[in-house]
């Protein structure tokens, strides 16, 4: 059974009185523990697709099945619960909660599930090399450090899928590479399914599979030899 399956996924927005289609009947399925890169120029619908796969938004048409659960009938709160249990995120601009320390930020997904958090969060921070900085606030950390905290948070609740939206977009090449390596390592350790949205073709080339979008359509679906 695929981990993620989407069928005829279509999204459109009203813009200037006209209907603007940003995703047009996308269909594919992703296997568990695989890595997939979604690539395409700006405005091709990558982030929209990612949001729909994670249940952050509702599609205009089509459906998404995540780990056997059809997102269609679920209301916003049910989708939120599903995300809490099965999905982790890494964003381009980190999106840490500024009022929480690194340790607390990593704890949030576990706390939302009501699971013991502190020890596990500490472990993960050490795993990303920030064991010493666990009581620092995001504003006291560099971009690379913040993104490492975000990576720790993404894997904190042992999700089945981690979505990463341009995770290196705000980092220099060296730091970006280190963060990617970290994500890949943890992904391998835990067998998590990884979906990356990126501009970076080198990064895309490291994935098991590359989905290429253009003007909201899936124009290529390449598996790595």
């Amino acid at each position: 059974m695929p981990m993620i399956e989407c069928v005829s996924l279509t999204q459109s927005y009203a813009s200037g009185g006209r209907e603007l289609t940003v995703l047009d009947a996308i269909t594919f399925a992703l296997e568990a523990s695989s890595t997939t890169a979604i690539v395409g120029p700006s405005g091709s619908g990558k982030s929209t697709l990612l949001g729909l796969l994670a249940g952050l938004d509702r599609p205009r048409a089509g459906r998404v099945v995540l780990d056997g659960t059809d997102l269609g009938p679920l209301d916003e709160d049910a989708r939120a619960r599903l995300r809490a249990e099965k999905v982790g995120f890494v964003f381009q601009s980190f999106h840490l909660v500024p009022t929480l320390t690194a340790l607390e930020n990593v704890s949030v997904p576990l706390e939302l599930l009501g699971r013991p958090a502190r020890e596990r969060a500490r472990e993960l921070l050490s795993r990303v090399g920030l064991g010493e900085r666990s009581h620092h606030y995001p504003s006291q950390l560099s971009g690379g450090e913040q993104q490492r905290v975000a990576v720790a948070r993404a894997f904190a609740a042992d999700p089945r899928v981690v979505f990463a939206d341009e995770p290196t977009g705000n980092l220099d090449a060296r730091t970006g590479a280190a963060v990617i390596e970290l994500i890949e390592e943890i992904h391998r350790e835990r067998g998590t399914t990884l979906v990356l949205v990126t501009h970076d073709l080198d990064l895309a080339a490291r994935a098991d599979r590359v989905l290429r979008l253009h003007d909201g359509r899936l124009v290529a679906d390449e598996a790595r030899g």
Binding site: D77, R83, F89
Partner: peptide, 9 residues
């Protein structure tokens, strides 16, 4: 962000 991470309304 909280909703993305799975917090309900």
């Amino acid at each position: 962000l909280l909703k993305t991470l799975g917090a309900t309304r």
